[in-house]
Design a protein around this nucleic acid. Structure first.
Lengths: 152, 152
DNA sequence: TTGTGTGCAAAAATTTTGCAGGTCA
DNA sequence: TGACCTGCAAAATTTTTGCACACAA
């Protein structure tokens, strides 16, 4: 089964980094968990579950490297750990997150209506935008429904 | 000089929290540093510079409390520490940040063109949005100019 | 007076680093 | 072979917590 790992291995090679078992393993985990937001510890746990062994320091170093190479994005949901998601982008921009302030669930949205806003900022502020990170906080459907059930 | 501290002290009182010297001191620092993004350590250092003494644990606990009360916003610029900025909002929404990926400088923008985007999300995703956090990454004017000078 | 708040120091949690040895190209 | 990569353990950093005492209401 082709999950598209070659592309990422090629990036490594091309930028002068070696393709190792540990890096491949971590890439596989990221590919198997697209749309998740894994922390270094998450990744490390999954590796152990798969009966493999990779030191936690290597996981930290690898995800940092992947971020530098644009293979992953680093995201922060204020839960005390850095999280990463695979960059599966076809275009430049990507991932907005909806974060439920009740249950903490994180959902992805794909809309990309920020273009006009970005253009305006680029002109007004003289700032060349290369990326953005947008989070919306609020109440998700489930929590809203639960709340309704409670009182109706 | 009235910096508007009363409003915040009132919030404390009203929500059943005591008004103490330490909390007032921290509020004063936040008021004197609007538009800054202070970490707990920053606040603690400023207190010491003012020849006052507040334990660092108290700073952590106080800023957490202030966040719960909506007195401050917690923001994360991926530099390893939590940062806070005073909520001076008149309306609901607030603060977008432009983060320069060259020099790390953080600028505020006030535009609020997210309304239509939010409405769309609320309908499509059935998610009630109460707040947002928007960061734009890119190259600031100064870094762009420096870059130009280098090559022209 | 009494429950809250504070300071200290210890602990917890997350991430980084030095170094010796292993591996990929 | 040789530079890069890894694992381990120690260290660094940031944040939290327990507890005795202090203070605001």
């Amino acid at each position: 089964m082709d999950k598209g790992i070659e592309k990422y291995l090629y990036t490594l090679q091309q930028r002068g980094y070696k393709s190792t078992n540990q890096r491949e393993e971590i890439l596989n985990i990221l590919l198997d968990n697209k749309n998740e937001h894994l922390s270094c510890e998450d990744v490390h746990k999954i590796i152990s579950m798969n009966d493999k062994e990779v030191g936690i320091a290597t996981v930290y170093r690898t995800l940092q490297l992947f971020e530098k190479l644009g293979i992953v994005y680093k995201i922060n949901f204020d839960d005390g750990v850095a999280r990463y998601e695979l960059n599966t982008e076809t275009e430049n921009h990507h991932h907005h997150h909806l974060i439920c302030t009740e249950c903490g669930k994180v959902t992805e949205v794909k809309l990309d209506l920020l273009e006009s806003l970005e253009k305006e900022i680029e002109i007004e502020e003289d700032f060349i935008i290369s990326d953005h990170d947008v989070k919306f906080y609020g109440i998700c459907k489930e929590c809203k429904d639960n709340y309704r059930k409670k009182w109706e």
